[in-house]
Simulated scan of single mutants.
Amino acid sequence: MFAQSPEELVPRDRLLSLSGLEFLQGIRDGELPQPPIARTLNYRLVEVEEGRAVFRGAPRFEHLNPIGSVHGGWYGTLLDSAMACAVQTMLPCGATYTTLEYKVNITRAIPTGMEILCEGRVQHAGRSTGISHGEIRGTEDGKLYATGSTTCLVIRA
């Protein structure tokens, strides 16, 4: 299930009534809508546990840059999603986050249509910041296609 309009996004009071892990479990289980960006970039949340989030996806023709390779922004958005959601799993009710910065290292090109897994894992979950790292790997070949790291600001309501 994907949100089709702003009215279909999770209301803020509902978001704040759940822990970060509960919120993401609801998305994974289809009880809450996947974010609109997931439809745009052809990925979805498939696994979530404390300190870890995994997305599955495949780049499409629409994600190519002018020279015909998958745009670096596709890698970056998937890594940002997985790494930041890993931090979100550590948040209590009433807290949210925003990405302060992230870094991406692309190690090889992903062919259009190839399915990947993008995993984020928390390295530090503090009161005001969370730090995590991520990897994009091919589902069939297991090869590493990109890595990343992020720092998130924790926002307490």
Rank of each mutant, 00 (worst) to 15 (best):
D80W: 04
R108C: 06
V154E: 08
K143Y: 10
A53W: 12
T112G: 01
R121K: 15
L64K: 05
L41F: 13
R137T: 15
E49D: 13
V70K: 13
I116L: 12
R39M: 11
L79T: 10
Y43D: 02
E101R: 13
F2G: 00
S5A: 12
F2M: 00
E22V: 02
R137E: 06
G30M: 09
E62N: 01
T98Q: 03
A125W: 03
A146W: 09
L24R: 08
H71K: 08
Y75L: 06
G73H: 08
W74G: 12
E115S: 09
E50V: 05
N42R: 14
S19I: 09
R127D: 06
R12H: 05
R121Y: 06
T107N: 03
A109Q: 15
L24I: 06
Y75I: 04
L79S: 07
T98C: 01
G20E: 08
V87Q: 11
R14D: 10
E22R: 02
R121C: 13
T89L: 08
A125S: 15
H124G: 02
M1Y: 04
H63Y: 09
I110Q: 09
G148T: 05
G73M: 01
F61L: 14
Y145F: 15
F23P: 00
L144R: 07
A58N: 05
V46G: 04
C118P: 06
T99D: 11
H71L: 04
G76H: 07
E8H: 14
W74N: 10
R52W: 01
P35Y: 03
V87S: 02
R60I: 02
R56V: 09
S149W: 03
I106Q: 11
G138Y: 07
M114Y: 14
E8Y: 00
L64Q: 12
H71C: 05
N105W: 05
L100A: 14
P35E: 03
S132Q: 11
S149N: 12
E101P: 14
L15K: 14
M1D: 04
E8N: 13
G120C: 04
G76M: 08
S128H: 02
L144I: 03
R14Y: 01
H63W: 09
E62V: 08
L78Y: 13
F2R: 02
D29W: 03
A82T: 07
I155E: 00
S149C: 07
I106W: 13
I106E: 12
G130Q: 06
H63C: 02
M83R: 02
V48E: 10
A84D: 11
L144W: 04
T112P: 13
L32P: 00
Q25H: 10
Q4S: 14
Y75Q: 09
G73E: 02
P59H: 09
L16Q: 01
A146V: 03
Y102V: 00
T99G: 14
